[in-house]
Design a binder for these strands. Structure first.
Lengths: 342, 342
DNA sequence: ATGAAAGCGCTAACAC
DNA sequence: GTGTTAGCGCTTTCAT
């Protein structure tokens, strides 16, 4: 079935059929109905390939994911998908599958520069997508990784300072400050932190927020109260065990896996959670609700990140200017059982 | 940059350029090199849209996912992506986002019949994908849900008996038998099972495998040793508590969440795992390695399911006949700490 | 071995 | 308000 067939069957020209399909011009109700009826009966669906070739846009947004198995990816793509569908856009997914090589090696992303830019070229110049959303699996700075392109490019979850990109992510510094203020409000003064690797973007941003929250309360965070782990369960256990020497009343672990390790270390030491020590995690991964006690943790609104990334990219496709280079999505603390409340 | 430009710059016809790009005919080395050089220098990438329109195929496979957030989806899509990329295919992703509505309501899929078939039509007749892979989030029978189409259709993770579909999934019955035989070999005789909802496809298949394994060992599974849960943690806890009355030495829970509940119930009863009671789960979800003790469980090779689905679909695109209507991927048991070994 | 040109299905400028 | 038609960028038949 082609537009030509529809035209023939309804006794009008292909132009008229096109006009009714796209509502692009007035057509007499009588003809319009005839056309609509024929389309209905024949089950005709316009050939988007032909249309794309003609109008020089595809209504497809290219999604380049570092790895779809990365924990934030599905929720982000879910958000992108919801917004895109609502606006009549399709998603061409290119999964870079870098989980194994990128795992815990944030800085090795540079090694993939060529691969990433090639994938983008293919999406852009081959598949002719109208724009690209790059979905990171870590929140980090990837400035300089993606070459400049002449179509809208937005980065979700990671950020980049390049002039031609937009980013949408969350605020490590702010939410970490919020965590500390919560603990402070509950009367904690001896607060320990289990950070990620020292030279890592989220670790540095979060430390900054933590230190600021202390400062603004007229307190300081002593070095003996912070340990740097590697995001894994074991390092959470080890760090927490070491931290216990300083007799903290609360521990903020920078992810749920390390928080899980911390919980076990605290329990092994014969202390109760949250009566003796409060613990708060980060990410709200699935495991956090299966720990004992159930882990209070920070939740990043990943779906919203996807939604906003899609929204931004569509705005830019329409030619609207988006001033905010980096949009920040609000995070929140999920209250469960590991923080003792006053 | 178009093929016309390349032709002009290298002083040949567009036909010749096309011949060298596609290696579709002999071209004198001299001309070929000239063309290649121009392409290289100009960074030309063929317009796949135009090519698709002309050759009536897109080299795109449409992936229709019930929900990308469903736990098996990312790994399956990872497999599809790997195979597709290797063969030069792209993936157009349509995420149905049915997680909330489908959650634990296996049979309500029928309500989505229209939505699913519409999405398929769009993919097929609009976007002109060459084939479709339907990625289920539950392993269940969806016969009759997807209308017949004239392009290859393969279903991953779920199965369908329709004559025009191929499925690739795992064997519930076999792996469940394997679980029971493992337990039997380790000397267990009082084996209890925490099943999913009674009228559910995987529950029935797995029960069949379990009963057969008993039968083949000359034993029978007493009704008092089985409880039907709802896949959630709490129901695992409740079922296990009830089961304890029969003094089992081993419990097979049909998913990791219920196994987690069972572990806690057993521990609450003052029994040790695995010394007093062995527990084995299903799915190898992330939580299973964070439970105490770490959960021994069944792992389904999801990536392989994706790989095989892609392979099957590409075979069918090439016109090869695939006899096996339902391909079965081998599952295995991940040995951790909840099964006492002899 | 190579080129001219038709045509894939659609939109939109232009003519009426 | 409607029809005719050129042309989007490519492949491929047919002729040379």
């Amino acid at each position: 079935m082609t537009i030509k067939e529809i035209a023939r069957l309804s006794g009008v020209s292909t132009a008229t059929v096109s006009y009714v399909i796209n509502n692009s011009r007035n057509v007499t109700p009588e003809k319009r109905n005839r056309v609509l009826k024929v389309i209905e009966e024949s089950g005709y669906t316009p050939n988007l390939i032909a249309k794309s070739l003609r109008v020089q846009k595809t209504d497809i947004i290219g999604v380049l994911a570092e790895d779809i198995r990365g924990f934030p990816s599905p929720a982000i793509i879910n958000g992108i998908s919801e917004y895109a569908e609502q606006k009549g856009y399709n998603i061409l997914l290119n999964d870079l599958r870098m989980l194994e090589t990128l795992f815990n090696q944030y800085d090795h992303i540079g090694q993939h520069k060529d691969k990433i830019n090639e994938a983008i070229s293919l999406l852009l110049y081959g598949a002719k997508v109208d724009a690209i959303i790059y979905v990171g699996m870590f929140d980090r700075d990837i400035t300089g990784i993606i070459n400049e392109i002449d179509k809208p490019l937005v980065i979700a979850y990671s950020i980049a300072g390049d002039t031609y990109t937009h980013s949408v992510t969350y605020d490590n510094e702010e939410i970490s400050g919020t965590v500390i203020r919560l603990l402070l409000n509950e009367g904690h003064r001896r607060i320990a932190v289990i950070a990620g690797p020292h030279d890592t973007f989220p670790t540095q941003m979060r430390m900054r927020g933590i230190e600021r929250a202390f400062r603004e309360s007229g307190l300081t965070l002593d070095n003996t109260f912070v340990r740097y782990g590697n995001w894994e369960y074991e390092s959470g256990y080890i760090c927490a065990s070491a931290l216990l020497a300083s007799a903290p009343t609360a521990i903020f672990a920078m992810n749920d896996l390390m928080a899980a390790g911390a919980i076990d270390a605290v329990k092994s030491a014969g202390l109760r959670i949250p009566e003796d020590i409060s613990i708060i995690g980060f990410d709200n991964r699935e495991i956090s609700s299966f720990l004992h006690p159930r882990l209070t943790t920070v939740e990043i609104d990943l779906k919203e990140i996807g939604l906003r990334a899609a929204q931004t990219v569509l705005k830019r496709i329409r030619g609207e200017k988006v001033d905010e280079r980096c949009q920040v999505i609000q995070s929140k603390i999920i209250m469960r059982e590991t923080v003792r409340l006053l």
